[in-house]
């Protein structure tokens, strides 16, 4: 194949190689060629309590899956397809291992402590405690509390892949209870379909926070669950809406920037 005949995205003549699959030697050659991409993506998930070696193994497996499943006739760049597949594999890895493995033990312990202290103080004070109050109550430094806050949400399964939902709420039910304010408010109208996919409670929490302007503490009292829970549900719901509306866009961009890095 001459240079000019190749698709613009196929600088290495990979399309030709894909046509020669399932030849094992070709599969190996492709794996080697795109290994830097897998390594790159693996490293982006580093620092979450899993060794880089393990992550690279997972990413390499994702790469092989991508090679096996790629259809060169569909006009999608292989790198795009592979990035999505590999990122998906890495996210699934974290999700399957559970929180306990992703978060370093020390951080896990302080996160738990912060969580408990926050709940206690919240009950005792009847308001959201300050960071210094939580630090004093948990016998941690303020820095440790802030790190723990980040850990609590950064490592929540929802932030790794909010799109995977256990939510089986039928659409008919959710549509009926959607608050009309969501539909008229600027900026929110376009995400109405995504909001409707949220469970009732989560949608209600977003409504109370963003449209009623209630604080998390007030919402916690109104909804009857803890403030920490409200905090997590808000972060998770925002992320779920984002994934819902960015799905197609993210796929086009190749998902080279894992959203697991967020929040």
């Amino acid at each position: 194949m001459s240079e000019d005949d190749r698709p613009a995205n196929d600088a290495n003549g990979a399309v030709e190689l894909f046509r020669r699959l399932p030849d094992p030697a070709v599969r190996e050659e492709l794996a080697e060629r795109f290994m830097p991409l897998a390594r790159h993506l693996a490293r982006r998930f580093a620092g979450r309590g899993e060794s880089v070696e393990d992550l690279i193994q997972v990413a390499d497996l994702g790469l092989l899956n991508a090679i096996d499943r790629f259809d060169p006739e569909r006009g999608v760049q292989f790198t795009t397809f592979a990035a999505v597949t590999i990122t998906g594999e890495l996210k699934r890895h974290f999700r399957d291992r559970g929180w306990s493995i992703r978060v370093p033990r020390s951080l896990q312990e302080s996160a738990l402590l912060v969580h408990r202290t926050l709940e206690t103080l919240w009950q005792d004070l009847g308001r959201s405690p300050t960071i210094s109050e939580i630090a004093a109550g948990a016998d941690l430094t303020e820095e440790a509390v802030i790190e723990a806050m980040d850990a609590i949400q950064a490592y929540s399964p929802a932030s790794l892949d909010a799109a995977v939902s256990e939510d089986g709420t039928p659409m008919s039910e959710t549509v009926g209870t959607a608050d009309p304010s969501f539909e008229v408010a600027e900026g929110w109208a376009s995400v109405a379909p995504a909001l409707e996919k949220l469970p009732d409670r989560e949608r209600r929490i977003l409504y109370l926070r963003f449209f009623k302007g209630m604080t998390q503490t007030e919402i916690a009292q109104e909804v009857g669950i803890s403030q920490m829970h409200i905090s997590r549900l808000i972060a998770q719901s925002l992320e779920r809406v984002r994934r819902e509306i960015r799905g197609p866009e993210a796929r086009e961009r190749g998902a080279s920037e894992p959203e697991a890095d967020r929040r």
Binding site: R44, S128, T130, I131, I134, D150, T215, S231, P258, E259
Partner: peptide, 30 residues
Amino acid sequence: PDALHILRVVAASAAALLELPFDAVDEVRI
């Protein structure tokens, strides 16, 4: 994207200096 957590933590620390409540600090991070 993986550097954003540094900005979140710095902003949260600044918010803590102002004695903002937990929920406000949380939302600064977001």
